Amino acid sequence: MATFLSLLSLLVGLSACVDPVALPIRQIERRLVVDGLITDEAPPYLIKLTYSGNLTGSLLIPEELAVNGAEATVSDNTGRTVSLEQDALNPAYYWLRDPTFRGQPGRSYTLSVKLPDGSHYQSRSEPLQAVAPLDPLDAQYYRQIRELGQPDIYQIRVDTQDPPTPGNFYRWEAQSYLPRWAKSDPLHAPPTPPGERPQVCNTCSCWVPYLGPLTEVLSDERINGHRISGRLVLSSPIYAVGNQYVQVRQYSLSRGAYQYWLLFEQQRSRSGSLFDPQPASIEGNVRAMSDTTILALGYFGASAVSQQRLTIPGDTININWFLNQFGSRFIPEKQDCFQAYPQAQLTPPSGYPPR
């Protein structure tokens, strides 16, 4: 017992002598970040140039992270070069607006960027490869675990025919416009404050864009020449009864772009378990001209595009049944559409097939 008390006193004394230490935060040198794509669709094309740093959820890029005053050009393998124009309102956005400069399968494209500090970056030559046509979209309704507060979903799947030539790489970009309600559902008027006349709420029903993952990629290494059938590209949630509008774009990728996006998705989806892939540096295709060991973050790509649109009719779901199942679970009570959903629009998007 005496020995134990002596050890306890020693430990207490030692802990009393430990002062908190403020470790210096490692400052990582900022790097150029490139995000842009040339396609075989009509211009304009957007190239986004920023510096690495902490981005918020806002759509606007902080002024200190925007690359302001860069000189950017895109050239093709025929020797033609076109300058990009900086956006006056969003200085991180650079636009290629020349209507005569349109991506063509079989050609390759190179991005060149001169920063305000005089440093010069250039991408590897990126080939624009043809892409297989996308078949009409398929949507299937699935119920989720409602006890966990999850909405039901439409699963959006794609079909396409892989060409017989090997070395085809795909990426899919999918989004939907979801009907949303605010303050009330269509069957129940919003509450009227005492002493005021009942009013119709014109901003209680709207459509809100919902983006799927941007890194859904596939190689034809194991399926060359076969059909790609039932590929899930989007799980679109159902928060309200109404038409959903879905768009899927199918891109062709170079081998380098495929490897970049595959590694990007592996790093993004890490869960912290022992079975996660080991962290690795995601190498893009833009380097400093003076020292090729200095890499920019991000990727400059070139791709052909095939797209399909689908209108999912809202009358396939009974509104009384829906309200009985979910009530007002997905309805903000004190905010209208514009307050609750920053990208809301009161009318459906245009250009979609009729229901």
Rank of each mutant, 00 (worst) to 15 (best):
P209G: 02
R102K: 13
Q343K: 09
G53M: 08
D135K: 11
Q278C: 05
W95H: 11
I223W: 05
Y170S: 11
Q308D: 08
E173A: 07
V21F: 07
F330K: 09
V34P: 00
T192G: 10
L23N: 11
P44N: 02
Q267T: 06
G225F: 04
T3Q: 14
E196W: 13
S273L: 12
S205M: 08
N54R: 11
V286C: 01
L211Q: 03
L128F: 10
G272D: 11
V82W: 03
G118C: 12
Y177W: 15
D35P: 02
P44V: 03
Q129D: 09
T78N: 13
Q144R: 13
Q122V: 15
G36R: 00
R157M: 13
Q247C: 04
S235Q: 15
T347Y: 10
N168W: 09
I25L: 13
I331Y: 01
S269Q: 14
L263P: 00
L32G: 07
Q278M: 13
A139G: 06
F4S: 12
D291T: 06
E265D: 15
P279Q: 01
E333M: 12
S252Q: 00
S290V: 05
Y210H: 11
T316H: 11
D138P: 00
Q266A: 04
Y299H: 14
L55P: 02
T73D: 10
L218T: 01
Q140T: 15
G167Q: 09
V200T: 14
E71I: 13
T50N: 12
R197Y: 11
V217T: 12
R146V: 13
A92Q: 02
L111Y: 02
F338L: 08
C201F: 09
Q27V: 13
L297Q: 14
Q339A: 14
Y251M: 03
W321K: 06
D159G: 06
F322M: 03
S83I: 08
P277I: 02
W181N: 15
E29N: 09
N77G: 00
S350N: 13
R197C: 07
S205I: 04
L232P: 03
Q335P: 03
Q140Y: 10
L37D: 00
T347K: 08
G284P: 00
N318E: 09
I145D: 15
S205N: 09
E64F: 14
P179D: 12
Q122Y: 06
G106N: 07
Y258D: 03
S236H: 06
D87N: 08
P166C: 05
I223F: 11
L274E: 15
R227D: 05
I238M: 12
E71V: 14
A288N: 03
Y260F: 15
S350W: 05
R26T: 05
G195W: 04
G195L: 06
Q308V: 10
Y299N: 05
G195R: 01
T3Y: 11
E71N: 13
V33D: 00
D87V: 03
L310K: 01
R268Y: 12
T73N: 08
P116Y: 10
P313F: 05
R329H: 04
N168E: 14
Q325N: 06
A22T: 14
Q144Y: 02
G272V: 08
G13K: 07
P105C: 09
F275W: 13
P348M: 05
K183D: 09
P332Q: 01
P164W: 05
Y341K: 10
A257Y: 00
R124N: 14
P44E: 03
D291C: 07
Y299L: 13
